[in-house]
Amino acid sequence: MNDMRRLERDVDTSDIKISAKGVQVYYGDNHAIKDVDVSIADKTVTAFIGPSGCGKSTFLRCINRMNDTIDVARVEGDIRIDGEDIYDKAVDPVQLRAKVGMVFQKPNPFPKSIYDNVAYGPKIHGLAQNKAGLDEIVEKSLRRAALWDEAKDRLNEPGTGLSGGQQQRLCIARAVATEPEILLMDEPCSALDPIATAQVEELIDELRQSYSVVIVTHSMQQAARVSQKTAFFHLGNLVEYGQTGDIFTNPQDPRTESYITGRIG
């Protein structure tokens, strides 16, 4: 069966970055994700929206196998990145996660200096030949995360000393420093104030140039602002998936409509 799918996928050589088919996730006895099929395009921002507990974060964590770190979680189905089954036995989650970066809900800088926070990924993956190379990666990443100007004079200060918005941008810099192909963001702005949120959203839009970005958000406005495609999750099901504009203006499913108009949530 696996071979069949592979054949099928090999035919489809468009710019689909991630394709998921029949994904089921169980937390112990709890069936958290029910049969989700989705294809995520390269160099776009895809937003996952839905009420809390609908499974959007769980699904996001399947894409870089972060669910592996939870003992009771079990993932079934087929998720492919560039046609390769990421749950294949031969795939090392460590290598996968270098390719699929992740930014978390709460800014979680390591208790190290700003420099070491950003350099951490490149160091463990051996991306820099020498100190100069590393410096270069750090600077590039901080620039990409629009943090360089604020941080360049305090690279040796602890990352935890930055403000919330800066910390989250530091985490984004940290994620892009490993040169991922996909960036997963799990409600990256939920712990930030409106100004910091605006900065991060602006950043997300820029990141689209180089990465395929998947963002989970509980804010429909945010989804509408930053994403090109939107998926609506409800009770573990992927209810509707399409162009962001279509979803918000012309939802096909009554559940989507109820959610967008604020009747469920």
Binding site: V94, Q95, G101, F104, N108, P111, Y120, G121
Partner: peptide, 21 residues
């Protein structure tokens, strides 16, 4: 746990996460 997730999410192995974070 967020600290561990941050490191694992960057592709660090478990032992690297423990030793370095």
């Amino acid at each position: 746990q967020a600290m561990r997730d941050g490191s694992l999410g960057l592709g660090a192995t478990h032992s690297e996460t423990i030793r370095q974070v």
